Computed example of a mutant assay.
Amino acid sequence: MHPTRPFTRRTVLAMALASLTSGALPALAQTKPAGHDKALRVILPLSAGSGADGAIRAISTPISKALGQTLVIENLPGAGGITGTAQIVRASKDGDTIGIVSNNHVVNPSLYKNIPFDSIKDIAPITIIGTTPFVLVANPKVPARTVQELIAHAKAHPGTLNYGSSGNGTILHLGAAMFVEQAQIDVPHIPYKGTGQLMNDLLSGQVQLGVVAVAPAMAHIKAGNLRAIGITSAKRSASLPDVPTIAEQGLPQYELDGWIAAIAPAGVPKTEIDRLYQGFVQGIASPEAREALIAQGYEIQLTPPDVATRFMASEKLRMQAAVKAAQVKMD
C-alpha cells in the first residue's frame, strides 16, 4: 500500500462491489419522486467537450430514466474548476442540484490560496462514477520505448526534451511533473490551453512528451503517431495491455488515475444522497450507459456515498504531497 495513500482505489472498488452485490439497494420507480417535479440541474465545472463532459452526457438519458427527472447539464468552466464548483456548493439543499467533478477538485487546494469553499467539508459526495488511466506518450522521434530508456536519454541529452500539458495546474500537468520529479530528470514544462492544442503539438513534435488520457490517444498510438511509454495507474490498461505501467518500469511510487465523481452541496439530506446514488447505480447498470463509459475509457466504480467521502479526503492528502514533491506551482 502506498505510504501516502492509505485508502486505495482497490479498496474503493472492493467496498463498492460489496455494496452493489449485497442486495441492499431498493428499486427506483420510473416516475418523478414526490417533491422532485423539476429537472435535476447538473453543474460541470469543466468545459464542453472535456472527457468528463462527454462521459456524463453519454449516460444522462439512462440516469434520467432511473431518477424520473430530466437532467439539465450546465458547463461552468473557469479557474481550474473553482468557478463552477462554487456554484455547486452554494446551490439549494433539496437534492435537485448536483455537480460532476474530477481530480482537480482535490488538487486545487494545493495550488490556489483563495478558494471560496472547502473541497471536502462543503460537499456531500454521491459516488465515484469511474476511473480512467493516463498514459505517458512520446513523439516517435524520441529514441526511447521504455521508461528507463527515456530517463537515460533525458540525462544524456539535457535540454533536448520538454513536456506539454493541457494547462498549468491541470491533472495532466501534475501527472507529467510527478514523472519528471520521480525520474530525477530536467525536462521543462510547456502549458497549453486545452488538450486539443497539446495533442496537436505532441503529434507535430513541438513538444516531445506528455501525459494524456488513454481513450483520445489510442488512435494515435495504434497509428504510430505517438509512442506509449508507460501507463500511469497501478495496473495496466485493458485498452493497451502490452504497455507496462510506469511503476513496474522502475518508478514504484508512481500512480495516477483520472476519476469523475458526482457530488451535492453539503447539507443535502442523507435520504436525497441515497436516492441520487441509487439513480446512478440503476442508470449505469443499463448496457447503454456501461458501454458508453467503457468507450470513454472509464472503469466503472459506483462507490457508495460513504466510500466516496473517504476516497476524496484521502485523495486530497495524496495530491497535496504530490504537488509539493513535484513542485507544481501556479504562475
Rank of each mutant, 00 (worst) to 15 (best):
L17F: 08
V268F: 10
Q278D: 11
Y192A: 08
H220E: 07
P265C: 07
D122N: 14
S314C: 14
I263Y: 04
A261M: 06
T4H: 13
A66I: 12
G224W: 01
T31V: 10
I273C: 09
R5L: 14
I43R: 02
F134C: 00
G84A: 02
A322P: 00
L25G: 04
T146A: 11
M218I: 13
T195L: 10
D242M: 07
G205N: 06
S110A: 15
P241R: 05
L76H: 08
E291Y: 06
E272H: 06
Q148G: 04
K193H: 12
P62T: 11
G35Q: 10
A223V: 00
A213D: 13
A247S: 14
K270P: 06
I43D: 05
V142Y: 00
I260K: 00
E181P: 07
E299Q: 07
S92D: 14
R318P: 00
I120G: 10
A176G: 12
T70F: 07
N108R: 14
A295L: 06
F280S: 09
T245G: 04
L256Y: 13
L67W: 03
T160P: 03
P26D: 09
D37W: 11
N75W: 04
P109W: 08
L28E: 09
I263V: 15
A156I: 03
K324R: 14
Y112T: 12
P216A: 00
H157N: 15
P265G: 10
A124L: 06
A215L: 00
A326R: 06
N225W: 00
P26E: 05
W259T: 03
L76E: 04
K38N: 15
H153W: 13
L240H: 04
I185H: 10
A52V: 12
A266W: 07
H157G: 09
A55S: 12
S286V: 07
S22N: 07
E149Q: 15
Q30L: 15
A177S: 14
T127E: 06
S286L: 12
I129A: 10
G250Q: 05
D331W: 09
G194P: 01
Q208I: 04
N139G: 05
S233I: 02
M218V: 12
V323P: 05
Q30I: 05
A27E: 13
K324W: 01
